[in-house]
């Protein structure tokens, strides 16, 4: 699906003192059906990596290939193909959903894109699709006529997931999908993502600073620190037997209930 090949992303003027290397020589393969977790703290480069996968940004050096084709932000056809099959869920549904649009418009917006429709890969009947995805994420059909502010945080994240599902994607990129939610709501959204990934055979790329969340949803994990991969392996192994000191410190920082 994705090949990330020696990718470096530098922000700021190159070679200047203020330049920040968000990603430093990262190489990674994502295969169909993978459930990959990317973990690291703020500034480790995890969001930059996901933005590159989503075609929202271009690498400074190296390249990202999607189904064998090099991602180039100037090539609208590859991008359209990418957007028809790769969808994203962001951290905070309060800022990722347009407050002036009704839920129905928000969810079907990707289906109205001319470029996406030209790919022939997306559902053509927005009305039917809207009803389907709202049902899949557990929202009533009446939700379509309401505005995002009329919903709770967990429900808003369901709306964001419904929108991502609308074009019938193969890959779901989720950037901290539960970290803006209450712990009590977190379980519901995690259950929803688990169910959707299983029933729709989605490839999942999940970014989180919480290894417990990653272990629950993913089978593979990549640990990023200062833009470099410091550890990777099966989610369970990294969670149970972390090798890198950084991974250990991440795990130790997660607050846990005493027994």
């Amino acid at each position: 699906m994705f090949e990330v090949d020696h990718v470096t992303r530098t922000f700021g003027r190159r070679k200047s003192e203020t330049a920040v290397q968000a990603l430093d020589d990262v190489t990674l393969d994502i295969k169909s059906g993978d459930r990959l977790g990317i973990v690291g703290e703020s500034g480790s480069g995890k969001t930059t990596l996901v933005r590159l996968l989503a075609g929202l940004d271009s690498p400074t050096a190296g390249e990202v290939r999607f189904q064998g084709a090099r991602l180039d932000r100037r090539d609208p056809h590859t991008l359209a193909r990418l957007r028809a099959s790769v969808q994203m869920v962001f951290q905070d549904p309060r800022s990722s959903l347009d407050p002036r649009m009704k839920v129905g418009q928000i969810v079907t917006e990707p289906l109205r894109s001319r470029r996406l429709r030209q790919t022939g890969a997306i559902p053509t009947d927005p009305k039917t699709r809207l009803a389907e995805v709202l049902d899949q994420v557990g929202l009533p059909a009446a939700a379509a006529a309401l505005y995002p502010h009329e919903f709770s945080g967990g429900q808003r994240q369901r709306i964001a997931i419904a929108r991502a599902l609308a074009p019938n994607p193969d890959i779901l990129l989720a950037d901290e999908p539960v970290s803006a939610l209450d712990v009590s709501v977190r379980a519901q959204v995690l259950n929803l993502i688990t169910d959707l990934v299983t029933t729709m055979h989605l490839t999942l790329v999940l970014v989180s600073h919480d290894l417990a969340v990653i272990r629950h949803l993913c089978d593979q994990v990549v640990v990023l620190q200062h833009g470099r991969i410091v550890e990777q392996g099966s989610a369970d192994a990294v969670y149970s037997h972390p090798q890198a000191a950084y991974t250990k410190s991440l795990l130790a920082a997660v607050p846990r209930l005493p027994d």
Binding site: S184, Q188, D236
Partner: peptide, 22 residues
């Protein structure tokens, strides 16, 4: 009881259905 159950993510079997407050 529900709050405590949802806070025990570290004990859940990966991929299993998590308990919710409801």
């Amino acid at each position: 009881q529900g709050l405590i159950a949802t806070a025990r993510l570290d004990r859940a079997v990966p991929g299993s259905h998590l308990p919710t407050v409801d």
